[in-house]
Design a protein around this nucleic acid. Structure first.
Lengths: 153, 153
DNA sequence: TGGTTTTAGTTTCCTTGTCAACCAATAGGA
DNA sequence: TCCTATTGGTTGACAAGGAAACTAAAACCA
């Protein structure tokens, strides 16, 4: 007597493959930037602050999809690495503003190059048309659900 | 004088969108199965063991893309929930084998239904053709890089 | 103006994973 | 047959986030 077959397979779910590929990409990227002494989350924060006006932790939490607590800790780490600086807000004693240090500013382009490289290495296997289609689909999905702070189209 | 523009934007990277959408899907799924008392990782392990021969932790670590240590802890949790059982290997005193308990077996189909539902809710916005294309692309990427133990085509 | 409510950030605790050190037991080789 | 190397699994330290409690400073308001 066969087992009840009523369970769809893991690999039937798009979500499963999405998670798998996403993990692969992130892990590969993490490995590559590790030499520069930063993690993926740190890169995202640095990038968000690069060439942008100094921002408050809570604003960054919003755009990065993290909680305030997470940003506090992330900022602590980046400050410890001298890539970031906390600056008091003259108008509001509660508030503060995060700014890259010169070292931070200098680091971003290098990391961006690595990110480009990683993306190429990973998605290079696809044709240009496939890449375009994938991007379009992902942006659509991202926009549809979660409230992304990034332009999805 | 404008800032050096030499850094590509975060949203230029497919990897970025992949991570974003993947997180959305996983979080939504996690929320839905929370009521059943399991996490996403636990679901993956349960599913991997369902209707399959009992397997060793290291083998599962391989197929799930986790370390042995992670599987040990995951198994501990599932055992605490009476969904899983550790069984000594008669031929090798070091080895063991993991098997679902009856409760575990019973739970999987319910979770699978939720997973189906979640996938539909998420990817329902796409046309059938888009879904097919996405799946094909993801499987290709997964197969290309990481040594996936799952059939990628 | 004095009291209450919001808001900005931090801290604490919990979960989950990695990595590396470790313990046993088995396999292999002189 | 020992002695060494490998393998299976566990453990402990640490990293990274989320949730909720907490602190201090504004803002609102009667």
């Amino acid at each position: 007597m066969p087992k009840p077959p009523s369970a769809s397979s893991l690999t039937d779910h798009l979500g499963f493959w999405l998670r798998m590929v996403s993990n692969q990409v992130s892990q590969a990227f993490a490995a590559k930037i590790e030499a520069r002494g930063v993690t993926v989350a740190e890169w995202v924060l640095l990038r968000a602050l690069y060439a942008a006006p100094p921002q408050s932790p809570s604003k960054l939490a919003g755009t990065m999809g993290l909680t305030k607590g997470a940003v506090t800790k992330l900022a602590d780490r980046l400050i410890a690495k001298s890539l970031l600086q906390r600056r008091p807000d003259p108008d509001d004693a509660r508030a503060q503003t995060l700014v890259l240090t010169p070292a931070g500013e200098r680091l971003v382009p290098a990391l961006a190059a690595i990110a480009d490289e990683n993306d190429r290495a990973f998605f290079g296997a696809l044709t240009a048309a496939e890449r375009k289609a994938l991007e379009k689909t992902l942006r659509r999905l991202a926009g549809h659900h979660g409230k992304t702070p990034f332009p999805t189209s």
